[in-house]
Amino acid sequence: MSGNEPVDDAREGAPEPAKDAGPAKDAAPPEGAAGGAGQAPDASELMVKAEQVHKSFGRLEVLKGIDLNVRPGEVMCVIGPSGSGKSTFLRCVNHLEKIDAGRLWVNGHLVGYREKGGRLYELRDREVSAQRREIGMVFQRFNLFPHMTALENVMEAPCGVKRQPKAQVRERALKLLDRVGLADKVHGYPAQLSGGQQQRVAIARALAMEPALMLFDEPTSALDPELVGDVLEVMKQLALDGMTMVVVTHEIGFAREVGDSLVFMDGGRVLEEGRPREVLANPRHPRTRDFLSKVL
């Protein structure tokens, strides 16, 4: 479903740092430039477009040029060994980390910057926050606010950030909690909920902001095995409702069944990308084959 250009793993050409002006080709593409030809769709038609994204922590280069396209409505699953940069990439998409080079668009907006006259300008905190409202994120460790009940957790951002009327938010929050199967736990504090229940509250909390894109960073890997199913079921329903999702996961079954595309990352690069069944059945890259033989 996603960009079908063959992925070559040797990408030596380091692009220019993000601070400098890019060449004309990636500066504010005009509407309809790429058309429906299916080749290199431009950022305005994609939910996420990553172009040669680089990220280093000190001298450790964690992302070495990530190119990824996520179409609206697509569910992209990302797998790869520990330390390959999966979490870092998700955090870049949400601008929790600044990228060093390359370009990243979400929903047609350049993440963290404004491009004007061939130069990049950093966005103010307020503008970054506004961008993040379009993106929901679910963390491995849930990160619910422990001093608020499940309902308060879900209501906090819509009430406080979007300033929506409380009664309306409350009604929607109750519906969301019901949708994730927690209608009877709305007044429980996180410490009184099981891990699986906490993670479902966290999903409801992210959905309450009505995001266009949901990011999941190993949402089930901190859970007891018998609790994983409930969370995956909620995510599957979400996918069926048409939500655009990027899911870092080791749940190969979920990737096969729900994913539209599967990405294999290793050492800060995308080594393989394609339809989940195809990648899983006959991986082209030896590293993918190696990794899958260990996980499956």
């Binding site: 993040r132 993106i135 990160n143 619910l144």
Partner: peptide, 15 residues
């Protein structure tokens, strides 16, 4: 992780 989750919800630093 608490500040991070809050930031991901679009909350301002002061908030």
């Amino acid at each position: 992780g608490q500040s991070e989750a809050a930031a991901a919800l679009g909350m301002s630093r002061l908030r």
